[in-house]
Write a protein that binds this DNA or RNA. Structure first.
Lengths: 189, 189
DNA sequence: ACACTACCAGAACGTACGTTCTTTTTAGAT
DNA sequence: ATCTAAAAAGAACGTACGTTCTGGTAGTGT
């Protein structure tokens, strides 16, 4: 055996998230990706073969390490508090830079079926998780009894996307936090 | 005098909207823009000077001709029916390709203050229009009396963004129309 | 200590894209 | 009909970017 690579793949993927977030896919150039990761060009192409497949990998990593962590609140399923915790974390997460998955969908979704597929899968899962939490919340009598759970879940899912866009524009999180309260407040009984 | 340009600027701008919608800003290449508009390269650069300022012009044109037309429902201000008409039209408009303004915000917003500014202005206006309609709706007793108007307007504004993202993923309009009903139904008294 | 392996840094390559220039065509004025 | 000025078409240019290649280097095993 001989030398081992000195970059850690997970680190590289994490570092790349920001580059894509800031400039989008086409706007993120290899020079900056190389410079801001502890990566080298050769390693990059041996490992991934192309910028495109690299994006897919970063996207998967982003979901695993960031979005899933936030969604985990919903999957712990404590009812309404889980939803509140989810939104609190999500707002903090997207603040000032948005969501890589959403950005990728709007930039590449039209041309890239794989991106659309990943996006749909994510939204479906979000929707299902919201339903789970709302059902639990209903059974715990945390929300008003006549709440239409499926509709509400659909609304919450749409709302999350809206936040991701808003986050790019909003300077601070105040506005988004306010909006969240406005949203969840009326649900509670 | 002599020859007059045979392209019509409004037509060119309208035709370009689709190109940017499909591929984003960096993904839309000059060759395709030229090919799909009745424009010529020289005219393009005499008229706009660069791809970037062209985008700004297209964006302004997009707002004037498309978004404003849809927002006009809100500004006619018939209360709840105006909001319903707005969403119906908006869903139809973004279906399958999303919203150019939202796409531009997520692709370029981080780096481009001008884009952020245009985006904020648009969201503010949307929010204000929703407030106007909701107030009217309240005075006409079209919505449940204890509705918090500011909060609801903020929510509606977020939904609109969410729809723009969803529209890229959804094959047909059914899903989005369902979501709209789920959204507006509970408001009505 | 030495050799071997494969990693790192960055130069080099080729292509693709934004922009400019050249040629050709056309509409209007005389 | 002819001349002219400007517009259209697209060739040409330069640069920037994705990708590949090269030379030197640093671990690792003997």
């Amino acid at each position: 055996m001989s030398r081992k690579a000195q970059y850690n793949l997970d680190d590289v993927l994490s570092q790349s998230i920001d580059v894509f977030l800031e400039h989008g896919y086409h706007g993120a150039i290899m020079d900056e990706i190389i410079a801001r990761t502890d990566f080298n060009r050769r390693g990059f192409y041996l490992e991934f073969g192309s910028k495109q497949t690299f994006l897919y990998t970063v996207l998967a990593h982003y979901q695993e390490t960031q979005l899933n962590k936030i969604m985990h609140h919903l999957e712990s399923n404590q009812g309404l508090p889980s939803i509140q915790a989810y939104f609190a974390d999500y707002v903090k997460h997207v603040s000032g830079k948005g969501c890589l998955l959403i950005n990728t969908i709007t930039e590449l979704g039209f041309d890239d079926e794989k991106v659309r597929e990943v996006g749909r899968h994510y939204l479906d899962r979000l929707q299902i998780d919201f339903i789970g939490c709302l059902e639990k919340a209903a059974s715990l009598k945390q929300i008003t009894p006549n709440t239409n759970i499926e509709s509400t879940a659909l609304q919450l899912t749409s709302y999350v996307q809206g936040f991701a866009v808003n986050a790019v524009l909003a300077g601070d999180t105040d506005e988004l936090e306010l909006a969240t309260q406005a949203l969840l407040g009326p649900l509670a009984r």
